[in-house]
Design a protein around this nucleic acid. Structure first.
Lengths: 245, 245
DNA sequence: CAATGCTGTTTTGTATGATAAAAGCCGGGA
DNA sequence: TCCCGGCTTTTATCATACAAAACAGCATTG
């Protein structure tokens, strides 16, 4: 029973960073605003200055803040935020209505993923292709929506990896976050495995035979279907899921 | 009190982070490898543990590392790296032949920027449009290539802002880094202002009148021209610019 | 012999307190 | 009025100490 840690399994400086970061994403501290100084944060969280400073350094590294001597830490303009960072994206998602978030994500996905599928068709290595088809197999053998989320994410990430452009990889986090969280809010909605598993199959086949335009087209179909699911679910849960603040 | 470091105008922990980060991007420490521990870094850089730890936290925040008690700090797989972070991107650029970097960038730009131009045509606000046209004016009045880089960057960033999708903003850093560094390696090449200024004008006009498909097409033309400039310059400087390591 | 549990060691995590340096603020003097 | 130097606030850096996690290896026991 030595596991009596009240605070949980995460580092303290991580939690402080998460708390401050969330507040910034929520708009408690707007861009340009000066944050409380280190001593204040120490009092607020009951943590040492060392810990607070590491948290602040973390937020600096993610582009949310800029600390300067005598001035303090100032919130950077939004364009500087590393929004595709895993943590920042999570805070962002938590700070806005999911439907709005999904709209932004889908807009980006519809731009990128068809081209990613096309690139994957042209550039994939055999082992990368195998990861994609493995993901599809797992998706097919999933018994319910819950189980199919992980393979679904894996499929899209594998496709991204097969595109072989390192500059695109940050989008993996976006896809992962979006698909996972999308499922949580649309789990009971229509358009289940019967529809989207075959659509993934079409993509895989096109990629496998190196047909980029077919891969692109198949991905567009899948994304339009996703749009529809989101629209249905958003209509269904309307005014039933107020934004928790 | 050998406190007389003060080696420059930048923070010490920043420099340490930069040094370690560069080494990771160069492959000195491959994904999965365990880094020297904090005490070692202290000796290497002659810095205190506090400073080293802040640097390591920074790299953690950028997704390059993951630190765990007793294990040490392990380099994360490339997919986790925050490659669109300003610093990481700079280290990445410094660690590879520029032509290879430009190829990756152009591939992404050709996917995204036409759609960004289209979105900008549909979603821009009056003030956002003004920033774009201001950038164009500055570009027109630039006397040489050197002077035209900043307005060029500004033009593309303003377009990105006018697209009004926060999830796309990380690409601003990529565009900025690419255009700036591209100029440095292609400054004397052909296809100067006489060609690309009018091409930017066409984009602006299409955006201004909300014609998304025209904006998209104009951007495609511009990017193809950029491709050509890169190809010329890369042929010209072939084997004259070995990769500095 | 094998499984289990304890103890030691290594490495990061956190706390404390002290000093340094940057940069805005403000008062004094020419 | 303007400029200069000290005052003050805030981050930056240092040094030291102890806590906690997790692996390694030994001992203990069935």
């Amino acid at each position: 029973m030595k596991k009596t840690k009240a605070t949980g399994n995460e580092n303290l400086h991580r939690k402080v960073a998460e708390s401050i970061g969330s507040q910034i994403l929520e708009g408690v501290y707007a861009p340009g605003a000066i944050l409380p100084n280190e001593a204040d944060w120490c009092r607020i969280y009951g943590a040492s200055r060392t810990t607070v400073r590491e948290a602040v350094k973390t937020l600096n590294a993610k582009g949310l803040l800029k600390s300067r001597t005598k001035i303090g830490s100032r919130v950077e303009p939004r364009e500087h935020w590393n929004i595709l960072d895993r943590d920042v994206l999570a805070w962002h998602l938590a700070s806005m209505p999911p439907t709005e978030f999904f709209a932004s994500v889908q807009q980006v996905r519809k731009i990128l993923e068809p081209e990613i599928a096309a690139l994957a068709a042209l550039n994939h290595s055999p082992s990368q292709l195998k990861v994609i088809s493995d993901a599809l197999l797992e998706m097919q053998s999933a018994k319910n929506g819950q189980e199919s989320v992980a393979p679904d994410v894996k499929f899209h990430l594998a496709l991204l990896a097969a595109a072989n452009n390192p500059l695109l990889s940050p989008f993996g986090i976006m896809i992962e976050t979006a698909l996972t969280s999308m499922f949580e809010t649309t789990s009971t909605s229509a358009g289940g495995p019967d529809i989207f598993v075959p659509q993934h199959e079409v993509i895989l086949k096109a990629v496998a035979r190196g047909n980029d335009s077919a891969a692109r087209r198949a991905m567009i179909v899948l994304l339009e279907n996703t749009d529809k699911i989101i629209a249905d679910s958003s209509a269904a849960t309307k005014s039933k899921r107020p934004h928790k603040n």
